[in-house]
Structure formats: structure tokens, C-alpha cells
Amino acid sequence: MNMLQFEAGVLEKLNAKAHWVWRETLKIHRQSQETRVASSLSAVEIFVTLYYGGFLRFDPANPLWELRDRCIISKGHGSLCMYPILADLGYFSVTELEKVCKEGSFLGGIPDPVIPGYETINGSLGHGAGVGAGMALGLKRKGRNQSVYVVTGDGELHEGSNWEAFMFAGQHRLDNLTVLVDNNHISMLGPTDEIISHRSLIRKFDAFGWFAIEVADGHSVAAIAKALQDCRREASGKPSAIIVNTRKGNGVPGLQDAPLSHVAAIKPDLIDQLIGER
């Protein structure tokens, strides 16, 4: 993929898709108010770029296709936006989106790998990086060229298990592993900087032997795509980390960047208004 192709038209399609996913995510939340919507809205453009930007190889008709790239959604509870993406791609019927959190549905408030397209269990935080590192090592030892992507959050990085995995991946030069940090700066009870500051994630990953870059605007699919391309080009012999600076509750007044937004619900009237407006 080259950026010219992006600029010629793909970028517009990606932006339109991101907007559609944002709207669909809000619609799901309107019918299932217990879903965690704020941390899902921060990650919309990350997942849209990965799944529609040509970075992942996958086959919705065969979710566990051996030649797929592996995408581990470690911030599982904050991935409601993946439901419309997976339905749109054909992993399951779009009618399933009307049943989220309802009896008999496989689409829960926190996703499980019974959902076609989900690789692992990620309701509990801090697991994706280590499992992803194991997959990346396994692929390398088998001489395979598939890649592993792990999407995590800055709050999730307070779990120490992540850093065991980051040390391991750097040591073993797992350049088929890319971690995207949805850096929305807010954890459950407030700003991550006020809880345990990460200070510089870039410097931390660098010290762990990773190629690390930052995306200033994590709601720009072009910027995320460029970062993914840069990783492919520059990160030979190293795993990659992309620190994607996002806004929790992106685009929702009262929710966006609100310190206690993690489990907050958006009133249906506001959702109707937002969907009509944007």
C-alpha cells in the first residue's frame, strides 16, 4: 500500500467507514446501555484502519484461516466498535447487532472468543501482549510470515504482565508483533497520569528494544495508517509499538475526556441527536 493510493480515495472511504462505525457503536449502546461505550469510541479509527486499511489479512468466511494475521483485542471491554466492523465484514449477520447483551446472543457486554473474529479472551486486562508474543514466536519458529497485532489501552498497561511480555518480545526480536496503545489518557477512576503516570511510553518501549512511534491524532485514519506503514518499513528486527493518542468518549459531549466516563451511559435522546447531527 502506498500513501498516494490512500490520498486518491481510500482515505475518504476509511473516514466514511469510521463515521459509520462510530454511529453504529452508539446505536448498539442505545439498545444496550450497560456496554462500555467511552473506551470503544476512542478506538474506532484504530480498528477501522487495521481492518479496512489493508493492514490485516483475514477471511470472514474462515475466521481461523491459517494464513490470517492475528489481531488480539486486549482491551476487550473497550471494543464494542468491533461488533459493527465484524458484522460489516461478514463474520456474522448484521441482524445480530440488534441482540447485543440480550438472551441468546453471542455478543456480550464484554466479548469472548465465541464471537467469530475474536482470537482470545480479553475481558480481564493485561493478557493480550503475552499471548500475542507467544503467537509471534510460534509463527517465527514455524517460518511463517503472518503478523500479530495487539490493541491495548494505556490504563491496561498498568498491569505488570504487559511489561513481562514487552521485555520478552524485545529480547526475541519479534518484528512480526505490533502493539497499538489506545492512549486515551483515562482509566476507570480518572486520568492515568494521576493514577500511575506512564511518563514517556515511547522511551519505555525504546528501552525495551522496540521500535516505537506516536500518533498525535488518534482519530485520523491517515495518521494511524502512516504509523503502521512506518513500522513495517523501519522495524526490522524489533517489535513495534504505536502510541495512538485518542480521546475517550470521542465525539460525545459530556462523555469525551470525562474522567469518570468509563462505565457512563449516554442517554438515548442524546444518541439520537448525535446520530442525526454528525
Binding site: 503475552g130 508474543a133 514466536l137
Partner: peptide, 9 residues
Amino acid sequence: NVSAGLALE
């Protein structure tokens, strides 16, 4: 976690 990843492969 690494063991789980290897097993998945």
C-alpha cells in the same frame, strides 16, 4: 501467556 500463544499456533 507465551505458552498459550504457542499452543494457539
